[in-house]
Design a binder for these strands. Sequence first.
DNA 1: ACTTATCAGTTGACAGGGCAAATGATCAAT
DNA 2: ATTGATCATTTGCCCTGTCAACTGATAAGT
Lengths: 150, 150
Amino acid sequence: MDDLTLSTLTWLRMVRFVQNSNQLSNDHLRQFGLTVAQFEALAHIRNFQPVTQTDLAKGLTVSGGGISRMLARLERDELITREQTWKTKHISLTEAGLETLERAFPSQLHQQSALFDDALDEDEQRTLHALMKKLYDHSIAERAKAEEGD
Amino acid sequence: MDDLTLSTLTWLRMVRFVQNSNQLSNDHLRQFGLTVAQFEALAHIRNFQPVTQTDLAKGLTVSGGGISRMLARLERDELITREQTWKTKHISLTEAGLETLERAFPSQLHQQSALFDDALDEDEQRTLHALMKKLYDHSIAERAKAEEGD
DNA sequence: ACTTATCAGTTGACAGGGCAAATGATCAAT
DNA sequence: ATTGATCATTTGCCCTGTCAACTGATAAGT
């Protein structure tokens, strides 16, 4: 009954794996009062601060509207600050934001990579990485193509 | 600056690829008035109808609350019906639901697999499938472990 | 100076989805 | 029959995210 081409099956497994992994990360991060999205936002901000909202949106591949709302929540929780100079807002971590990130970071990173390290040996990981790069690059090209033919 | 372990990089590419692919699918499905989530729900319902909400939630790996809302929207749009017998609601496609699905199905499937077929040859696809199966199964096991140790 | 692009960010309306508490319906045990 | 236990679904509250329309600020052309 089901539509079991190889790529369909692969796709399904990938989507579910990403789902499961995100859920595990969310469970894990709950003790720090963070979601995966927030964790990733904080990590990105730390690496590039001070950063504009537009750049942050690009870096995290979310829309401008999405980043605006997320940052509003992070600001409300006093994990980041937004300072407006001219027309641009520059985002930085607060003390509390940095502290939270640094508490969560190591275990989150470990949790994340364990999912790969436990399931695949080093050769397999390298192979997977190469395949994902191909797929990813191709999907980027497709998105760009869709964009221009708007 | 960035935390560039192999698994982190692989993870990032996988997440972005899934994002891009979903976005491409959403763009594609817009002409049929469907989202990816709705398309997948309709396809699943067609294959298993009549099906209970609980089973549907499991099949699509969303929570009970999530499925309840999504089905409410699909019912509002008259793509499905919910018939209550005893304590359970049985979901089926309406005429319009089936028709919409059948119009969208072939091109959506094609769009989906093209992303793999254009980027990877057959050997690579088989390798990827095997690796994803390993990862997926492992993530399922981890979720189960997290569940019991609640 | 005054209008017009243009760019950065916000906001309303919406879909998707999680969790936990509440409802409803059925079944089991007294 | 009545009280509980159990299961299916709903609902309130929240976060994530899109799109499109809107606001504000700056830059440019006349």
